[in-house]
């Protein structure tokens, strides 16, 4: 029998969402403003019970929820951690989220989890590995995943294809979708001294199921070149908003997440960032 209450939200709306922080729980329930959906980090909801799970159950009855994994290490040389994959499968099975995404990065090696999204070279060999891992993940959780483009601070001498060629090949071989982080595009293009607009123009936008926007910090490298750090700790800068508007013009409206994970602001500040995304989405889709 079809149980509609069991799966209230089949997909994310082409509207603003925010990364959920427990300190905003009451504010969100009282008045979510421009925010129409929520994203959680999968790993924070892999405990056995208690408040995190109870809050998530309550929110998921009211908002579409996106599960965003940060610990799977899809770009890792090592086989995927099957215990972690089982935990992810369990979370997705009971929550039935509107979307599930992970990163083109690695974080686990030699059974050490480094809690950061580390870069990988783009070669035929690493492509095979990532494709294998994504096939394994999609088979385990029983649904299509979105893969997020990384923010990078350095390059690999061994790299033999562009990030877009790499991502496009992954999509073609695995059938996964993409999560386009526009701040990561801006950060990586600045750090790699390439053009962020060309990146967006070349991006396979038909496969984009979600967009991320976030704040970054500014630093410089050993030679004085700008080095942007993807910190998720402040407001989104104007050039990233401009790049976002360009992305929406090209791709059409997409579910758009405001990511603010460090120095988390009050709800009003976070909601105002979502409202700004809302204005761009509304203007361009009108």
């Amino acid at each position: 029998m079809l149980d509609a209450t069991n799966r209230p939200f089949e997909s994310l709306p082409n509207r603003p969402g925010v990364g959920y922080k427990p300190q905003h729980y009451s504010d969100i329930l009282a008045n979510s403003g421009s925010v129409d959906w929520l994203e959680i980090h999968a790993e924070n909801y892999m405990g056995d019970g208690g408040r995190p799970i109870a809050q998530l159950r309550h929110l998921a009855e009211r908002f579409p929820v996106s599960v965003h994994g940060v610990g799977l290490s899809i770009g890792g040389e090592a086989p995927l951690d099957t215990d972690h994959l089982a935990r992810l499968k369990h979370l997705i099975a009971w929550l039935k989220p509107a979307s599930f995404s992970e990163h083109l990065a690695w974080s686990t090696h030699d059974s050490h989890f480094l809690n950061d999204l580390l870069p990988l070279p783009y070669t035929a060999q690493t492509l095979d590995r990532v494709v294998r891992h994504i096939d394994q993940v999609q088979a385990a959780v029983g649904r299509r995943m979105l893969l997020e483009n990384p923010s990078t601070y350095l390059a690999f001498a061994e790299t033999e294809m562009s990030e877009i060629e790499f991502l496009s090949a992954i999509v073609a071989r695995t059938g996964c979708g993409l999560l386009l982080d526009v701040n990561n595009v801006f950060v990586s293009a600045t750090n790699q001294q390439t053009d962020p607009v060309s990146y967006i123009n070349d991006f396979p936008v038909d496969h984009v199921g979600e967009i991320h926007l976030g704040g970054h910090d500014e630093d410089s490298d050993d030679h004085g070149a700008p080095l942007l750090i993807d910190s998720h700790g402040r407001e989104i800068v104007d050039p990233v908003w401009t790049l976002y508007a360009h992305t929406i013009e090209r791709a059409g409206p997409r579910p758009t997440l405001i990511e603010w994970d460090n120095d988390v602001p009050d709800w009003a500040t976070l909601e105002s960032q979502a409202a700004r995304a809302d204005r761009i989405l509304t203007k361009i889709s009108a």
């Binding site: 480094l114 809690n115 950061d116 580390l118 870069p119 601070y153 350095l154 390059a155 690999f156 001498a157 061994e158 750090n191 790699q192 001294q193 390439t194 630093d219 490298d221 050993d222 030679h223 070149a225 080095l227 750090i229």
Partner: peptide
């Protein structure tokens, strides 16, 4: 070795960003 900046020079401080991210987090 093999980690570089856009000009092909050693990554230096760029690698330190990852080191710092891991230690801080």
């Amino acid at each position: 070795p093999g980690l570089i900046d856009p000009q092909g020079r050693p990554a230096g401080k760029r690698f330190a960003v990852y080191r710092n991210n891991v230690a801080v987090s």
